[in-house]
Design a protein around this nucleic acid. Structure first.
Lengths: 212, 212
DNA sequence: AAGAAAATTTTCCAATAGGAAAATTACTTG
DNA sequence: CAAGTAATTTTCCTATTGGAAAATTTTCTT
């Protein structure tokens, strides 16, 4: 009985890491139906640079990574949050800016509070989690910023990527980095009522006010 | 009344981002009592490269970032998670009802949630407003940031500087700029229970501008 | 406080990233 | 299917990174 051992040099390791990262970049762009030209405009990078980065031909510098993250409507954390965990093509769920504004799925009904207010640094939402016997597993939700949840009524199970599910009773709360994949479900046979507050880094004026 | 607006060019933004990132690198290294030489050996990078990176003189490429993360016993995600927060991907904090830190004044009893977490971009607090016949008027409270309040139980009157008092029933909420003088009081003959979330702009490193 | 040792920064140069535009490939549409 | 257009990749060149070693600063030690 033999086992195959593949030995990689240090540079081969970083090479393959970079190539995989490039794939994620491309996926992220394709998911939003953006062309290289579009992302180039949004991020301020050259088309060729993005093309090379996506194919792992070059290793972007920190500065360009930051710019690119901005252009793709994420932040550095979201870029790397899923890294290391097994990469299933298509399993990438980065919520686009404002996507969670009116989220109504089989499991959720969200009501954004104060939608008319601009430049909020927090986005409070009231939500109802429908009771289900079987939790239909949607994809994990990921987005930039941080998140705070309190259970107002009922019992809620919070699924956090790479960890055991956490059960929260009425009055319990949880605080986490939204870049981590997360998902809520009602635990009891009644609907649960939750309050969620997200930070919305993109809408923060201090970051968006700049000139060319 | 004037407000100061600081306008940054795109390159100034990435510059300061890089500089702050460098500071975090150095902190991370110092925390473990490692010398540049030690990290150089662990990561395979040159001493000079790490030195320059820590001072924001150069923007590391993806490859070197990956290597450095390895040498510092973290991963890329932890580097960037929540713009300098100490959250590692997969980590989160749960606060159980009633196991909060208490802070008590004549009118308020506040319980800060997650006091042990640093670099939160929000500060959630549970509070009890004692019932009073006469509201003893403290000075208005003012601080930077924004504020969000939900009434969990009872009836609350919110006094906002330069406006009529607002009465909130259970489930009602209010969102405002914390710079405006504000004050809460229980309206009924029972104590009221509120949840307050404040943004703490100063504690977010990535949005604080400074120079060497 | 002086000299030695350790740690960090600077210098200089080879290796690599990043941008503009040309070349190629993929996608429409008549 | 050909011509035209859009999207991507290549090419070529300049700007910047990253490493080795020298120079400097900081930290011990006696």
């Amino acid at each position: 009985m033999f086992s195959t051992v593949i030995v990689m040099t240090k540079s081969e390791i970083t090479d393959s890491q970079r190539i995989m990262f490039g794939h994620r970049l491309r996926q992220l762009r394709r998911k939003n139906n953006w062309t290289l030209a579009e992302v180039a405009k949004r991020s301020g990078l050259a088309i060729s640079t993005i093309s090379k980065a996506e194919r792992g031909i070059i290793a972007l510098t920190y500065d360009r990574l930051a710019q690119l993250a901005d252009g793709l409507d994420t932040d550095m954390a979201a870029f790397f949050a899923a890294e290391g965990s097994t990469f299933k093509p298509g399993s990438f769920a980065v919520a686009r800016k404002g996507e969670f504004r009116r989220q109504e799925t089989t499991n959720y009904v969200y009501e954004m509070l104060f939608p008319e207010l601009w430049y909020k640094s927090m986005s409070p939402m009231m939500g109802t989690l429908k009771a289900h016997e079987l939790v239909e597993f949607d994809e994990f939700v990921r987005h930039p910023g941080q998140e705070f949840l309190v259970v107002m009524e009922g019992i809620v199970t919070v699924h956090v990527e790479g960890g055991e599910p956490v059960t929260l009773q009425q009055g319990d709360s949880i605080y986490f980095d939204s870049a981590i994949g997360h998902l809520y479900a009602s635990d009891g046979d009644k609907d649960a009522r939750i309050l969620v507050v997200c930070t919305a880094p993109g809408s923060n004026p201090s970051k968006t006010s700049y000139k060319e």
